[in-house]
């Protein structure tokens, strides 16, 4: 008994090398018959047979799906899609016909559907990248405001103290306290400078737009 497997192993392997195609074919034919029987029993309500069938076809489906999808998540999702489809249309299987073509036809439909859906999504949607984030720094967002450039030009004509006050309080929208801490000016002088700055800005902008 101990001899038998040892002596048969190598000879089997030799035969297998020579006729691997034929051996594969008989193996897959036997597997197909197994699956047909399991599916026929599942159609009659045999849960154990159905569970065994689904467990056996899952690795096969995974290998089929891996040819179509690169992302492992997609592979698993499409395998589950196929399993759900098989479940919902298990009436359409005719046990007198081979099982594998039936399964592969369903699987291919599901894989192609998923690829198409992904293609449509890719055409319609753009993933957000770091560049699409917005910043509170006014320099980053200036382009979005229509008159931003012009206003910036006007502000730079003001005296330095007024410039600082208007930038901190109005453009960056800081509170008086924060602005005072940041600039080292007192709250009163910030208020005065802002008031003057706005007055002269108003004058400059009105002058420019009136004539």
């Amino acid at each position: 008994m101990t001899h038998d497997p040892g002596s048969r192993g190598p000879s089997l392997r030799l035969v297998g090398k020579g006729e691997s195609g034929g051996a594969d074919q008989t193996a897959s034919a036997a597997r197909d018959i197994d699956w047909s029987i399991l599916m026929a029993r599942a159609q009659e309500g045999d849960r154990a047979a159905y569970r065994r069938l689904l467990q056996e076809i899952t690795p096969y489906l995974r290998s089929l799906a891996a040819r179509r999808h690169r992302d492992p998540g997609d592979v698993e999702d499409s395998v589950q899609d196929v399993l759900l489809t098989v479940h919902s249309i298990r009436q359409t299987y005719d046990p007198t016909r081979p099982f594998a073509p039936w399964l592969v036809a369903i699987a291919n439909r599901r894989f192609i559907d998923r690829l198409r859906r992904q293609g449509r999504t890719r055409n319609r949607e753009v993933p957000l990248t770091a560049e699409h984030e917005t910043f509170c720094e006014p320099a980053a967002n200036l382009e979005e405001r229509p008159d931003g450039r012009e206003l910036e030009g006007m502000v730079s004509h003001l005296p330095p103290a007024q410039q600082k006050a208007v930038r901190l309080l109005k453009l960056k929208e800081l509170s008086l306290k924060e602005a005072a801490a940041m600039s080292g000016m007192s709250i009163t002088s910030l208020k005065v400078n802002t008031h003057r700055a706005l007055k002269s800005l108003r004058k400059m902008l009105l002058d420019r737009s009136e004539p």
């Binding site: 309500g45 154990a48 009436q91």
Partner: peptide, 13 residues
């Protein structure tokens, strides 16, 4: 698979 198998009611071919 487990939940599908649990739902395997008999179907008419």
């Amino acid at each position: 698979i487990a939940s599908l198998a649990a739902n395997a009611t008999p179907v008419r071919r």
